[in-house]
Design a binder for these strands. Sequence first.
DNA 1: AACGCGCCCTGTCCGC
DNA 2: TGCGGACAGGGCGCGT
Length: 274
Amino acid sequence: MPELPEAETIVRDLRARLPGSTVARVRVKHPDILHTGLTPTVLDRRLRGRTFTGVARRGKNVVLELDAGLRIVINLGMTGRVVTSDAVRAGELRHIAVRIELSDGRAVLYDDARRFGDVDLRDEPGWAERDAQLGVEPLSDAFTAELLHALTRTSISPIRNWLLDQRRVAGVGNIYALEALFRAGVRPTRRARTLTRRETAALRDELRAVLQESIDARGTTISDYRDASGEPGNFDRRLRVYDRAGEPCTHCGTEIRRVVLSNRSAFYCRRCQK
DNA sequence: AACGCGCCCTGTCCGC
DNA sequence: TGCGGACAGGGCGCGT
C-alpha cells in the first residue's frame, strides 16, 4: 500500500506526537512481522527506557529515532499503519502486530492486516547498512535527470519494473511509477535503457511532481490506507491511469489499458504514451 | 549479475 | 446469501 507520500504523511504526523516520549515496554502479537533475526524479547529489552528523539523517512520506510542512536525501521508492506493510540478510536485497529507502550500512558501501534510489513531495530552502524541498500531519494537534489539517465542505461527491464526496485530509486511504488510514466508520455513496458535523454528528463520531473502533489494531498487512499491521524489521503481523485482500465484517458479519451508486468498490473494510454 | 516468477497473508469485490 | 476466484499500494528468495 504505502509508497513515499503515504510514509511521508505518517512521518509528519508522528513527528508532532512522538519525540520526548519514553518507552515503557513492547508487546509483540505477531512475531512474523519482525525483521529476520529480531525477537520480541530483544526488542523489548533494548527499547525499554529509551526516549524518542525524532521521526524520519527513507524511501517507503518510517524511521523512529531514539536516543543512543537506536532506530525502529518500519516497512509498511501493503497494509501497514503506524499510529499513536491517542489518534485512533478503541477497536478501530483490528490487526495490531506490535504495541510500543509509552510511559505517558499512550502507545505506538503497528497494525498490519496482511502482515507483509517489517519492523526492524538498528543501532548506528546497523542503520548505515540498511540505508546503503536503498537508492537515491527522488525528492532530493541528488536525483537529477543526468543521474536517472545514467542509471537506466544498463537495464533491459521494463521501466515500470525498474522504478519499483528500491535499490535504484527509493520510495516509488506501482501507483506513482505508473502516474509519472503517464505524465512523462512513456509506456510502462519500455525497456529502461531505451528511454531517450528527453524522456528520462521528463520522467524525473514528473516523478517529483506527482510525489510532491500527493504529499500535499496527504497521500493516496485506495481502500485501507490511513495516515497516523487515522485520516484517508485525498490523492486518489487525481490519479490519471492507476486502476482506470477501460476508462477514457483524461487527455485524449482513448481507453486506458491494463497489462501485467512481473505479476503486477500496469495501466497506460496507448495513444499518449510511447 | 540481473531479471522475472512464485509466494508470503488477509480482505474485498465480482460473477455465478 | 454463499462460494470460488481474482486482485490488492511490497518485497524476499529462488532458479535461470
